[in-house]
Amino acid sequence: MTTLTIDHVSRWFGNVVAVNDITMTIGPGVTGLLGPNGAGKSTLINMMGGFLAPSTGTVTLDGQPTWRNEDIYRHIGIVPEREAMYDFLTGREFVLANAELHGLGPKAADRALATVEMAYAQDRKISTYSKGMRQRVKMASALVHDPSLLLLDEPFNGMDPRQRMQLMDLLRRMGDEGRTVLFSSHILEEVEQLAAHIEVIVAGRHAASGDFRRIRRLMTDRPHRYLVRSSDDRALAAALIADPSTSGIEVDLAEGALRIQAVDFGRFTALLPKVARDHGIRLLTVSPSDESLESVFSYLVAA
């Protein structure tokens, strides 16, 4: 059982606060660290991995501090976000070097390469690898010593759907084996597919924690805004406002469009095309006007 404890941790760079008084406990199983870009996820992961000192607070792994404690790496496997990784080596040479640095031999390296299904390309130079292959070799290097805690910073970035599936299967397996697996992502769907437990970070703060269904509900229940252009804006507006899924409509004369606020996301998205068809109105533009993750997350923070 490996538990990572983050206790009232803050980190600032000059007068910029990257992580603001976060307290959380990460236990066995897969945990997703969710937040928009720039929220402080990497800073937090770097502190978890002992690569950055907290300005205040402590990060401990089963009671041991992670900062300035090289022995902690016997238990931690790290998959960094950055791409660079001794590109002049072959995949096997790289993983073997990682094994040797842990005092292990070729057996451990081969096992790790087999786990990530990279044995077939292990003798090629890393510089010739695709993004997904690099990610898997990084993963192998993090697994050579069979760590009980696995930290992954944006592991799915740039992966194609098949590679993503493979990595998700692998992480799920690691979690089922009782390892503590923490990965960061700014994509809700990724986190939702993989992690039963989610920690949400927004603007350096701990915004939400817990079961993904609860967080998902928080995210979808918020009011959604749409910008809609049609062949007859006023007729469309009249028809839509009659339904309780819509809470407000503004006719934006300058834009020549409707600004619609929907309270029931699911119902509204089904209603809009139906109403348009029934009234013989052509929809020209339907665009969500606040779908950026930042707005989703800021709603979460307010909730």
Partner: peptide, 14 residues
């Protein structure tokens, strides 16, 4: 380039 992380994330005295 950050690849030093693979050396630092090891039980190896700096």
């Amino acid at each position: 380039d950050g690849s030093v992380v693979y050396l630092l994330a090891k039980p190896l005295k700096r």
